[in-house]
């Protein structure tokens, strides 16, 4: 019994049954298949997280973001005091998370590639793009750079999904994806 010492002093030498050997082999191979799937998606898949990141002073990141939002502002979002920024395709696009907003609102063109920078200027936030359901963790002091290619037009919400204090559930931003002008 499993609650008593093994009866056989040299239990290591006991033979295995065929069932066990087959199951161990199957489970081991399945592990290799899953490992191989993860590795090969980096070569054949289109959804991989970039490894590009930089350390940056949050104040510097905020200045970069504000300068770009000012430069490419096309309108204000609804009746809110939040600019909508429409940077040129292929460019570096900045968005920041802070208590409790994603700023600014972005307007991107469908099927164009952008280098999206994400960072926080205070606490950790969770970038959750809905209804796409793309989820990234955003840290203060780290500039995360992703190359994205929005392939469906529409209005997307950026929900914060990392707890960031009492206003966490009000932290919603927007990304518009529009057809090419």
């Amino acid at each position: 019994m499993a609650i008593l010492p093994p009866e056989n002093r040299l239990w290591w030498k006991e033979p295995l049954s065929g069932t066990e050997i087959v199951w161990i082999a199957v489970a081991f191979v399945w592990g290799l298949v899953m490992f191989g799937t993860m590795v090969s998606w980096h070569f054949v898949g289109k959804q991989n997280l970039s490894n590009e990141a930089y350390r940056i002073d949050p104040a510097v990141y905020a200045e970069l973001t504000e300068a770009q939002a000012e430069k490419y502002k096309v309108r204000m979002e609804g009746n809110l005091d939040v600019p909508v920024s429409h940077p040129p395709p292929g460019s570096d696009v900045y968005m920041l998370g802070r208590l409790w907003e994603w700023w600014p609102v972005l307007e991107l063109e469908k099927d164009q590639t952008y280098r999206l920078h994400l960072s926080s200027v205070d606490w950790q936030h969770g970038f959750s793009l809905q209804p796409q359901n793309i989820n990234l963790q955003i840290h203060p002091g780290y500039d995360m750079v992703l190359t994205i290619k929005p392939d469906k037009a529409g209005e997307y919400a950026v929900v914060c999904n990392e707890f960031c204090g009492i206003g966490h559930h009000t932290m919603v931003g927007k990304i518009y994806v529009v057809d090419k002008k």
Binding site: W41, L49, G126, N133, I134, N135, N161, E162
Partner: peptide, 11 residues
């Protein structure tokens, strides 16, 4: 799984 976590993290 590294990539699948993108559609699940913190949900």
């Amino acid at each position: 799984t590294e990539q699948l976590n993108l559609i699940m993290h913190n949900t």
